[in-house]
Design a protein around this nucleic acid. Structure first.
Length: 228
DNA sequence: CCGGTTGTTCAGCG
DNA sequence: GCGCTGAACAACCG
């Protein structure tokens, strides 16, 4: 819709020098994991929606947009998001093969990166955007429950077969997540995230803040195996 | 009304 | 320079 179009007006409460965008042609829209990229000729604008961000096309909210781009055929408004400029070539900034949902996703590359981090806890590995770009905390909890792996497990102690299964199931679950999200039925399909009782063993889940980033982690010490 | 969070970055400290 | 912690951001839910 706006690809190839010229930005005729820029506004927003972003502290970045967004007026640079005025009169620029949109070359492309791309994504890398949780990053949404608006590509212009000599730079790109990186939008990260964080926890609460949103966007609207030809529509607006009560709150002021962080960034608003007007074209001759419509407008796009971004709210509560982080806006950054990328001056480097995108291929130098992004490893497209670690975007879990990209056609360029390379499971062997993920495996290599995991092997290079033998002491890592698996809950940190799944949240590492340089290994599994796009995976977040909900997906972390759900994938680990589905493959029956304790989040505190250490990468080097996990059987190669489990590593392979994790890489495979992570990508698969991300696509499933998107389908449920689009149908507004995501929450009801959670098996572990925010749950109190394990649906497999009917015992209480453990809830702990784990890993380098201390994120909420829900797991079952009965059916999820600890490799340590 | 308060506490918590699907996420990331940065300042400050040891 | 490092790793760690807490703050900041900001919208919505229970």
């Amino acid at each position: 819709m706006f690809k190839g179009k010229k930005v005729i007006e820029v506004s927003g409460n972003s502290k970045m020098p967004i007026q640079q965008i005025k009169d620029q042609l949109v070359m492309n829209f791309l994504s890398w994991g949780k990053h949404f990229l608006i590509v212009f000729k000599t730079f790109a604008v990186r939008i990260h929606f964080m926890l609460f961000g949103s966007y609207l096309i030809n529509d607006e909210k009560e709150t002021k947009p962080r960034l608003s781009l007007r074209f001759n055929n419509g407008v796009i408004n971004f709210y509560a998001c982080s806006v950054k400029f990328i001056e480097e070539k995108l291929d130098e900034v992004y490893d497209w093969s670690c975007d879990v949902m990209s056609p360029l996703w390379d499971p062997d590359n993920a495996k290599r990166k995991l092997k290079a981090n033998p002491a890592m806890m698996v809950c940190d590995a799944l949240l590492d955007q340089n290994i599994f770009s796009g995976v977040g905390n909900i997906i972390k909890n759900e994938v680990l429950f589905r493959i029956k792996v304790d989040p505190r497990s250490i990468i080097s102690k996990m059987p190669l077969k489990k590593i392979n299964e994790m890489i495979r199931e992570t990508r698969k679950y991300c696509f499933q997540f998107l389908e449920w999200k689009k149908a507004y039925v995501l929450k009801k399909h959670w098996l572990a995230h925010t749950k109190k009782i394990c649906p497999r063993d009917n015992v209480p889940f453990t809830k702990k803040h784990l890993g380098k980033t201390n994120r909420r982690t829900f797991f079952c010490t009965s059916c999820q195996i600890l490799y340590a």
